[in-house]
Design a protein around this nucleic acid. Structure first.
Length: 558
RNA sequence: GCCACCGUAGCUCAGUCGGCAGAGCAGCCGCCUCGUAAGCGGCAGGUCGCGGGUUCGAGUCCCGCCGGUGGCUCCA
């Protein structure tokens, strides 16, 4: 772990926060006793005897010996033989690969803290029993510990769930509407709208066409596509209408592919055909997995399906990468990593060596051409083909998948898609599934944390607030607001009875980019006094000068 | 879904040993007319998540459910 440690236990009773205090106290005693850590290489027989009462340890031992893996089940580096080692301090000897510090006394008794308790499946498999995991954090000095705890507090203030409410962007009504189904207030809706308009503009520029397919789909289509077999647990229960059974749409691919078919016979000359849609999908996510906007049950993908020939995969993949890069850059969003997800061993991947090889080669070539750093992950591919995923980190260090581009060899054939090739014969197109920001909801959640709620001017729900100093300046403030609105800015007038300082504070906490203060001087000169949310006071300027400043900021994306 | 914890006013939180439900902010009304991060006074606001149980008496104790938080598993 990055900032600490954890250890899993099987305990006879639930552990409480108070227990953690006692354990910390005991840990401090052990540190004070300054035991040396003693490493020992043991034989399999010794190991089995030593840990005979600890079934989980025995399982680890057998695994290390049998499969030559380390304690996490990962393969050892080539050439290395499995070795069983223990570390002992005082009377406690534990199976451990190490390394350790030399003595318990080297730890700072004031620089660690047990943080929380959580359940964790044995070896991360939900079929296994659940153990109790205790998380802790450890630092060199008490100061570093304090800084870390402080950082955690600051991170909580950036949490998109909290900022979403404080900034009036969105709300959840789990009791009334349902868990994981967000409600967007006017300020949140305008941000969504701006995000989607932006992606739509970029996609259009890159030759994508937008389509619309509805939310209800006959279940039979999902039977044909294979989703009913593989995806049923993520779908809301069926709606029965006499003979017909409908489902809420959990993804667009079958709808887009049906549209492709309905549009008639396709020639290879039409390809690639790129269908994009901002579609709200409904997925029955498990309740414990829901989390703010990053994991919801109603999600809007900026989805697209590209119908192409096999030898167009590389160019289309590259085009999609370019769109993603352009969009992420506009958000000044650089904190992500790219994963090339490849097939692993196993039955679930469709068996067609040639197609996999061709697609994987095309993806690598395109990633290289796009100049993207990426890492490869075996066993992360979809069963129908390899993919590239963009992973972003939220303010608390949790990683989320945003953009994705996936190659699909199988669904087009299942749904009977064809095009007529130059040879006059029918062929099955390859389909690329791809999402730029992933979903509007998750991306917005990450963006809120990324900007700590202070959206760049082009995205800010309210771009400027007019702050009249006294009542007699309200009419002028309204007049200015109208003029700015006419020029396309999103402007509000704070005409409440409070004092100017209060209104500035309010605008400041709402992270409004520009505060336009107007008093006697501004009315007389036809200006506005511009204050930025950074606290910087630009002083009075004409409306034209302000509009130019705003325009520059919008273009610069600040 | 699983493990642990939590649920009191719109928000943040207090409420002792089981004995009359509280504060700040936000809201509403009034006063103040003010130059770059909270002016002053007043008023209103509650099925203590829901249902059951124990008790003379439950926000407080017990059981079930709903919802949330942190993890685990899964995922855009």
């Amino acid at each position: 772990m990055k900032h600490g440690f954890y250890y899993d236990f099987e305990l006879p009773r639930p552990i409480t926060e108070e227990d953690l205090k006692d354990i910390e106290a005991r840990m401090r005693e052990i540190i004070a006793e300054d035991h040396p850590f003693v490493r020992r290489v043991i034989t399999p027989e010794e190991a089995r005897e030593l840990f005979k009462d600890q079934p989980y340890k025995l399982e680890l031992i057998e695994d290390i010996l049998k499969r030559g893996t380390d304690e996490y089940g990962n393969p050892l580096p080539p050439g290395q033989q499995p070795v069983l080692t223990t570390y002992r301090h005082g009377p406690f000897e534990d199976l451990c690969r190490g390394p350790h510090v030399e003595r318990t006394g080297q730890l700072n008794p004031k620089a660690f803290k047990l943080m929380n308790i959580a359940g964790a499946y044995w070896r991360g498999d939900e079929k296994n029993p659940m153990l109790t995991r205790i998380y802790g954090t450890a630092w060199r000095t008490p100061k570093e510990l304090r800084q870390y705890l402080n950082w955690l507090e600051e991170a909580k203030k950036r949490d998109h769930r909290r900022l979403g409410r404080e900034l009036g962007l969105f709300y959840f009504a789990p009791e009334e509407i349902g868990p994981g189904i967000p409600l967007f207030a006017p300020k949140g809706e305008i941000v969504r709208h701006l995000m989607e308009s932006f992606v739509r503009e970029v996609q259009t520029r890159y030759g994508y066409q937008h389509v619309w397919t509805a939310h209800l789909v006959k279940q039979n289509l999902y039977r044909k596509s294979g989703h009913l077999d593989n995806y049923a647990e993520f779908m809301f229960p069926p709606m029965v209408d006499g003979e017909d059974v409908y489902r809420l749409k959990p993804m667009n691919c079958p709808s887009h592919m049906t549209l492709y078919k309905k549009m008639g016979v396709h020639s290879y000359k039409e390809l690639p055909l790129r269908f994009a849609e901002f579609a709200t999908l409904d997925r029955y996510e498990k309740k414990g997995e829901l989390q703010g906007l990053t994991r919801v049950r109603a999600l809007t993908q900026d989805d697209a399906h590209i119908f192409c020939t096999p030898d167009q995969i590389e160019q289309e993949f590259l085009l999609a990468l370019k769109i993603i890069q352009e969009v992420l850059n506009r958000y000044r969003f650089t904190d992500y990593r790219v994963r090339l997800s490849l097939r692993g061993k196993g039955e679930k991947y469709i068996q067609d060596e040639e197609k996999w090889k061709q697609a994987e080669g095309a993806l690598r070539a395109a990633l290289k051409a796009a100049g993207l750093d990426y890492f490869e992950a075996e066993g992360e591919a979809a069963f129908y083909g390899p993919k590239a995923d963009f992973l972003a980190t939220d303010v608390l260090g949790r990683e989320w998948q945003l953009s994705t581009i996936q190659v699909d060899f199988i669904m087009p054939a299942r749904l009977g898609l064809t095009y007529i090739g130059p040879d006059g014969k029918e062929h099955t197109p390859v389909v690329l599934h791809r999402a730029v920001t992933g979903t509007t909801e998750r991306f917005l959640g990450i963006l809120i944390e990324h900007f700590a709620g202070a959206f760049p001017v082009w995205l800010a729900p309210v771009q400027a607030v007019l702050i009249p100093i006294t009542d007699r300046h309200v009419a002028y403030a309204r007049e200015v607001a109208e003029k700015l609105r006419a020029r396309g800015l999103r402007v509000e007038v704070d005409d409440g009875p409070e004092r100017m300082n209060y209104k500035i504070r309010k605008a400041q906490t709402q992270k409004v980019p520009y505060m336009l203060v107007v008093g006697d001087k501004e009315v007389a000169e036809g200006t506005v006094a511009v204050r930025l949310r950074s606290g910087e006071n630009l002083g009075p300027m004409s409306l034209e000068a302000f509009l130019q400043k705003a325009q520059e900021d919008i273009e610069a994306g600040v």
